[in-house]
Simulated assay, not measured.
Amino acid sequence: MIVALTPNLSLDRTMILDRPLVLGQLHRVTGLTVAAGGKGVNLARAVRAFGGQVCVAGVVGGFNGQHFRALLDAEGLDSVLEDGDGETRECQALLSGGHPTEINEAGPLYQPEAVARVLSRLPEGQVVVCGSLASGTPPDAFLELLCGLDRPVVDSSGAGLGAAIEAGASLIKPNEHELAALTGSAALESARDLYRRSGVQVLLTRGERGAAFVGEEVWEVEAPQIDACNPVGSGDTLLGTFLWARQGGQPVPEALQLAVASGSANAMLGGPLRFRAQAARELVTQTRLLKPAWT
């Protein structure tokens, strides 16, 4: 079981525009998708696509929270959700050619009582703490949350990644910008140094170039060449696939190759709602596995 604990769940609205985005001008929407969102939900979709057991956990609120519950139920994803104050945030993705324009609300303030209720109901399994923190979350509160879990996986940024290192997380998943903010460098060697100092494994995502894993083993995988339709959620899909594969006993190199192929398939097919495991499996042969010479 993989438990996707998401501190700042959302309603995701993806809008296809009739022409390239121009600020200050009228645009018409030619296609609209509304879905339960947040990094943990995208991760859960990938795990389920491969036949794994997964559960989405977090706090929702208001009419948007009711909508979120209904959409998640309609997808058949298991959940542990608690009601809190305020409205679950909305995140907008505008597609008009090229990379999406994303507009994300901040979301409700941190609600410790509701979070405690969620934590008390989590099923047994690998907990993955996914995404941004709720507004106003005290750094010490997030650190305490992580310390109360059994070596969670953490996919966050900024102070969230720092807390993950301090708490002794089993693995973090930064992108290159997040790694640079954490260590001062986006180079793979900085991830290796971080692992040596902390014992926390690093799954470094590199966008269209692929990903790398740094732990007792060090591997890089170059992504296949694809025509990207919508890359939103590709990192979440990559992480979900990697964790599913590792839980199933796959060695790190093979798990990383499948994970990178899944991230590419997500971008190629148009996002997590359209992701298919078979498309990822078909792309695996187009990935390239590398072992850095300095290992």
Score class of each variant (00 low, 15 high):
residue 128 V to R: 06
residue 284 V to A: 05
residue 71 L to H: 14
residue 174 P to T: 11
residue 172 I to K: 14
residue 107 G to H: 10
residue 155 D to A: 06
residue 115 V to P: 00
residue 55 C to N: 06
residue 232 V to G: 05
residue 127 V to G: 07
residue 150 D to R: 15
residue 285 T to P: 00
residue 98 G to S: 12
residue 98 G to E: 09
residue 168 G to E: 13
residue 88 T to R: 06
residue 210 G to P: 00
residue 74 A to K: 14
residue 174 P to V: 07
residue 241 T to I: 03
residue 242 F to T: 09
residue 176 E to K: 15
residue 39 K to F: 03
residue 209 R to V: 00
residue 77 L to N: 10
residue 212 A to P: 00
residue 47 V to L: 03
residue 260 V to F: 11
residue 28 R to Q: 10
residue 290 L to H: 15
residue 198 S to F: 07
residue 67 H to E: 09
residue 89 R to E: 01
residue 150 D to I: 04
residue 258 L to E: 13
residue 240 G to V: 02
residue 48 R to L: 07
residue 162 G to L: 02
residue 192 R to D: 01
residue 41 V to Q: 09
residue 203 L to W: 11
residue 220 E to N: 05
residue 248 G to C: 01
residue 112 P to E: 12
residue 133 L to K: 03
residue 1 M to G: 13
residue 128 V to D: 08
residue 41 V to N: 09
residue 264 S to N: 06
residue 104 N to F: 11
residue 210 G to D: 05
residue 112 P to M: 04
residue 81 L to T: 06
residue 207 G to P: 02
residue 90 E to V: 11
residue 49 A to L: 01
residue 24 G to M: 04
residue 90 E to N: 09
residue 83 D to P: 00
residue 67 H to W: 04
residue 160 G to F: 02
residue 92 Q to G: 05
residue 163 A to I: 02
residue 245 A to R: 12
residue 261 A to R: 01
residue 265 A to W: 13
residue 153 V to A: 13
residue 138 P to N: 09
residue 49 A to C: 08
residue 147 C to N: 10
residue 242 F to P: 02
residue 191 A to C: 03
residue 184 G to Q: 10
residue 221 V to A: 05
residue 68 F to E: 07
residue 140 D to S: 12
residue 78 D to S: 15
residue 128 V to A: 15
residue 259 A to G: 10
residue 52 G to A: 08
residue 130 C to Y: 13
residue 15 M to E: 09
residue 42 N to L: 02
residue 87 E to G: 03
residue 80 V to D: 12
residue 148 G to Q: 09
residue 184 G to F: 06
residue 257 Q to Y: 12
residue 103 I to L: 15
residue 263 G to K: 04
residue 22 V to N: 08
residue 243 L to Q: 15
residue 28 R to E: 05
residue 285 T to Y: 14
residue 130 C to K: 09
residue 287 T to E: 03
residue 199 G to H: 09
residue 207 G to N: 15
residue 130 C to V: 03
residue 10 S to V: 01
residue 236 D to W: 14
residue 101 T to N: 12
residue 250 Q to H: 11
residue 108 P to V: 02
residue 146 L to K: 09
residue 250 Q to C: 06
residue 267 A to Y: 08
residue 225 Q to G: 13
residue 111 Q to W: 04
residue 207 G to S: 15
residue 275 F to P: 01
residue 233 G to S: 09
residue 25 Q to P: 00
residue 73 D to F: 03
residue 171 L to Q: 10
residue 42 N to Q: 10
residue 154 V to K: 08
residue 49 A to Y: 06
residue 272 P to W: 11
residue 64 N to Y: 02
residue 248 G to A: 05
residue 88 T to I: 00
residue 289 L to H: 13
residue 19 R to P: 07
residue 283 L to Q: 11
residue 123 P to S: 10
residue 170 S to W: 06
